[in-house]
Nucleic acid binder design. Structure first.
Lengths: 254, 254
DNA sequence: CGATAGCGTTTAGCATTGTCGAACGCGGCA
DNA sequence: TGCCGCGTTCGACAATGCTAAACGCTATCG
């Protein structure tokens, strides 16, 4: 007997397919991509459309994601306890560090950004809440992989794409970096994800001492590094913020 | 024969229930709220959890919305053509008007905010993308109700809640306001939604001359009004922006 | 300009599939 | 320690959603 409801799994696969294929997709594309009869795909899409999860372009008949997903996704942020507790502290971190602050949680094979404070200057920046980052090359991801066994397993299974010349993709080399992360209590990303961009992140724990997320700052390597290493005062600020949020979540500091 | 897939409708109802009930809900609450057997609700929730649409608190066993909704909701914004076209113009409007800019589309019984540019000062503001606003009291909503027949029908059906002493709830009085909106090409909200807050909005049309959204500014009544009326230069700026976006979408300007 | 190929949609019948009621194991509470 | 409530599992039935084939439509091309 199947352990999961078939039509729901198929509907979820459709939503993910529509999310991946940067543009609108036709019914036939969807049906063949998932190996379904056109009528089956149509029935699911009709229901999803009625519920607001997908929309159909009246002209071309093609399908795309629907507005209800945005509404529910925003509601997820409102309910998220970690995010609510972190809101108070991340603004201060952005101000004191002068850099952009990110808050991430494990989701599937990567880090989902649930909060993002802009770097406090007047430059134009785009909000990255809802975006995904890889586990193996980012500071947020390495912290999660070092402290959350589930995240670690995801990192081992995932294919580790090289983004720059400095990206570490060999598993044993990554393990050493994770050991270092566990030993010193924070992780760095020294141009391993984007050229010229470095980051620091530290883990956030809940009342059961389990890692539930990570918080960190990201910025141009010229500003956040000195002599090829992250500036110690920035590392300290990030770790302080992570500890403050953990304390708010009920983690005992011993 | 049923026109829609039962399990999908039930799953969608669960997600909406979880989105509404500000906190985590237990299985029994969900099952009884929807009139389902506990085992049925459990099967659906288990699948939704496996797909990332709901999460379960390990301690209490209660359910809440899942992270996948945030990821998909953000993707919806990326695909949204109206939003992409408007991005270029809304920044300019915020700068020239000095006020916060909102972009909304009709969704269910209200206006869904799909873009929000902060007022260009250094005050702390919260992003309202993904939030819903009522049709009957807001400038964005009245524009949609005046130009989109579907939105108008939703406004008529919805229960029109009074938010301030100035909120108009009588249907014939609203109809006169909508007639005025159609005649002058924009709508206002003069402390009808929040005390001390006023707004202007104008419609955005696509290449088939159908209203697909509305754009407007919102701010303290002392700044955006003079002699109890919206300042004409702000009205002109909003209407210019709406026309620019409409032109980008392919609407012919005759 | 008519034939064609592809699209999204609808239809009918079958068997797979999701649903239900009842029982289970496990906590907190008195 | 007994109880009540929770989330979860089990097994059988029939309602449910799936499949395959045919439909109307638009756009394309010989």
């Amino acid at each position: 007997m199947a352990k999961h409801i078939q039509s729901l799994e198929r509907a979820a696969a459709m939503l993910r397919l529509l999310a991946g294929g940067e543009r609108r997709l036709g019914l036939s594309d969807i049906a063949s991509s998932l190996g379904l009869a056109k009528a089956t795909a149509h029935g699911i899409l009709r229901t999803l459309q009625h519920e607001g999860f997908v929309e159909q372009d009246p002209g071309s008949g093609r399908y795309q994601l629907g507005a209800e997903l945005l509404r529910l996704g925003t509601t997820y942020l409102d309910v998220h306890e970690l995010r609510a507790r972190a809101l108070v502290w991340t603004d201060d971190l952005a101000r004191s560090s002068g850099e952009a602050v990110y808050l991430g949680v494990l989701h599937q094979h990567g880090v989902l950004i649930v909060h993002h404070v802009f770097r406090p200057d007047d430059s134009r920046q785009v909000l990255e809440v809802g975006a995904m980052q890889p586990l193996h090359s980012t500071a947020l991801g390495k912290v999660l992989a070092a402290t959350d066994p589930v995240a670690h397993a995801e990192l081992v299974d995932a294919k580790r794409e090289p983004f720059t010349a400095r990206t570490v993709t060999e598993l044993d080399e990554i393990e050493r970096a994770l050991d270092l992360t566990r030993a010193q209590g924070y992780a760095t990303d020294n141009e391993e994800t984007f050229e010229g961009v470095a980051a620091v992140a530290a883990p956030i724990y809940d009342r059961r001492r389990l890692a539930v997320g990570s918080v960190g700052i990201t910025g141009a390597v010229e500003r956040v590094c000195r002599d090829g290493e992250l500036r110690p005062e920035l590392v300290a600020a990030v770790r302080d913020t992570a500890r403050s949020v953990s304390r708010d979540l009920g983690a005992k500091p011993f």
